[in-house]
Amino acid sequence: MTTPTAEPLSEAGVVPRAARTTGTAERRAPSGTRSPGLVALLMLLPASVLIITFLLVPIGLTFVLAFTNARLISPEPAQFIGVTNFVNLFSDDTFWASLRNTIIFTVVIVPVQSGAALGLAVLINSKMRGTNFFRTVYFLPVVTSMVVVSMLWLFLYQPNGLINAVLANFGIAGPDWLGNPKTALIAIILMSAWQAMGFHMVIWLSGLQTIAQELYEAAALDGANRWQQFVNVTWPGLRQTRTFILITITIAAFGLFSQVNIMTQGGPLNSTTTLVFQAVRSGFQQQQTGYASAISLVFFVLVLAVSLVQRHLTRDKEATR
């Protein structure tokens, strides 16, 4: 939208803050060495060009291509075909399965992952010995790539893999985790939460440490037990952190792809296919960019709606406080 045109960056427009307050600085410095307009333009140029080309244009293209029959590699130019892509999309059972799975994944993983991460944060938010060690260990999966984690857990989840071998020690016959439509999505949810939890633990922890110590002391003097302290001091104090964590987990969850592509390829019986997986399948493997853009647009609307709702909810709370 706002491209850094020469106009707002013109000599007259760009005035150093320092020079504004002290006119002398402007006069004394040799004007040849710093013409702020040109320098500002040059320093902004690379980022502006790259952001426009690789961020704003593709976002705009999503809206345009979704209404065309564009193909990835085609001699023919793309043609405008109205809402045909969406009509096809909404009559496609696989699309509904992918939408359903994406929503289930998100609805389950948001509370599970953020709740468990908060538990971890509360657990290690103390000056007991070894806190650093535990924080490091809980954080290890975060710095491990999702690709590696998926490959590793692909083995752990095998019918004769590590998890079932451990369960067998307790006399439990484990299922074929990834081969059964009933358990495949759950298996992916558990693994994903395991991988990313440490990330949100650290963010919760930073939120916890902004809460004033005196509040806990005051609550303790009033006879509040630990649970009451958590409900009345910790939880309200984490409002901002909470919003941030909910939005980031939700957006990341909607983008579910790597795990599915590596572990199940959307199966069994479409029980783990997702919006992004379907978008990649049609836009890359089948080269139907128009159709893939329509899926992306649905995805985008979903993300936008959730962000707006979450922002609205937290704003309301702020107003009533």
Binding site: P58, L61, A252, F254, S296
Partner: peptide, 15 residues
């Protein structure tokens, strides 16, 4: 632009 996940524009970007 921070709320737009990369996955949304991956396929248009590929094109």
């Amino acid at each position: 632009t921070l709320i737009v996940p990369f996955e949304v524009m991956a396929l248009p970007l590929l094109w």
